[in-house]
Simulated scan of single mutants.
Amino acid sequence: MKLPRKVKLVEVGPRDGLQNEKQFVSTAVKVELINRLSAAGFPNVEAASFVSPKWVPQMADGSDVMQAIHRRRGTIYSALTPNMKGLEAALAARVDEVVIFGAASEAFSRKNINCSIAESMERFRPVARAAKDAGLRVRGALSCAFGCPYQGDVPVASVVSVAQMFDELGCDEIDIADTIGVGTAAQVGTVFDAVTRVIDGSRLSGHFHDTYGQALANILAALETGITIFHASVAGLGGCPYAKGATGNVATEDVLYLLDGLGIETGVDLAAVVAAGDFISTALDRPNGSRAGKALLAKAAA
């Protein structure tokens, strides 16, 4: 199948990537990271999370971060908003897009947000409606679409069903997420083929973790089904606090190297992202999780 000419790349490192860091990342470092990523040309940066600091203390400074960043014209700044209180904070912080989240797995939904899938959707209904009324974009994140740490296999029909629920809530985009990184290329093809039968593929995105080293293969499989939106995290930051053993999101640098090699446009400057990955890895005093990033840094230093 012919691959798409252009792809929208959503950078999730500042939120999804940093939320599990045990040491508090300063507001100044978060702002610098977001500014670097904005300057690199991302059309969408997931910048903050307006959840209770009790549950995600790393994201407690979301309002301060949003106030301090340099907003690049044309970039959508997104924030996770699980309830009306979070939405009110997001509106005050002038976010462009709110993200609500549900799971294709009943077991994960109960472990993650303490309610059933159906109950979670009812909770999000007023949030989505109010966000739309305020003129914001709404994105639905559908976790555990390829496997669950608690129930194991997740039926394709469950993924389709939850995607339709998000669609009914008015979500502009729906993320099909491999939260624990267990998906395979064949499975990705099957799931996206099924979901695109009921929802336009232009509104679907692939969100892959690299636990089993399959994320790039899974992105290629999704590209072959016509998907043109993907999420990635600079330097491979991230994981999931409710999915033991889940490693980081696929590294943005690696995805860009793949897409550049396929001749697919992103509008994102790979060199600038490599520099941003080096910056945040140094700031966190941890190894860079991007293979392409490390290779390009070593090549530049040679």
Rank of each mutant, 00 (worst) to 15 (best):
E119D: 15
G62W: 05
T211M: 04
V195A: 02
K30L: 07
D193C: 05
M66Y: 05
A177C: 13
A40L: 00
I219N: 10
L296A: 02
F101K: 04
V182W: 11
R203G: 02
A251P: 11
A300Q: 13
L237K: 03
F42N: 07
G102T: 15
S290N: 12
L256I: 00
V198N: 02
G183H: 00
M84E: 15
C171S: 13
V195P: 03
G41C: 10
R203E: 06
A163E: 05
P43C: 06
A163P: 02
V45W: 01
R129W: 10
L216N: 07
P57H: 07
L204R: 02
S143L: 07
Q58V: 02
M1L: 12
L169I: 07
A128C: 14
M121L: 14
I34H: 04
A40D: 02
G140H: 08
I113E: 13
A177M: 09
S202W: 10
A48K: 09
G189M: 09
I180P: 02
G263M: 02
V162C: 04
C171T: 14
H209C: 01
L297Q: 09
F166H: 08
D153V: 12
I100K: 06
T228E: 12
Q19D: 04
M59V: 00
F208S: 11
L87V: 05
G13T: 08
A48M: 12
S116Q: 10
G213A: 06
A300F: 00
S158Y: 09
V268Y: 10
Y150T: 05
R197W: 00
R203S: 11
G213Q: 05
V99F: 05
A93L: 11
A92I: 06
P53F: 08
G183T: 07
G189Y: 07
A60Y: 13
A301Y: 00
S116L: 10
A302H: 08
V51F: 14
A272I: 14
L237Q: 06
A93I: 04
A243I: 07
S202E: 12
G226P: 05
T282E: 15
V138N: 09
I113S: 12
D172P: 03
A271M: 12
G189R: 13
A251F: 10
D178Y: 04
G213Y: 05
E168N: 13
A141Y: 15
F279D: 09
E265D: 14
V156K: 03
V56G: 08
L284M: 12
Q164V: 10
T211W: 08
N44C: 12
V182H: 08
S38R: 03
G239A: 14
L216G: 10
D153A: 15
I174V: 14
A292N: 13
G267T: 03
V198A: 03
G245T: 08
R72Y: 12
A298C: 04
E106D: 15
I117K: 02
L18P: 11
A103D: 05
T81D: 06
C144D: 01
V234I: 11
D167V: 01
A107H: 06
H231S: 14
S109D: 05
A128S: 12
M59R: 11
D16I: 04
E106M: 01
S109L: 09
A157N: 13
A130M: 13
L223F: 06
I34G: 07
G289S: 06
V12M: 07
L259N: 03
V45Y: 03
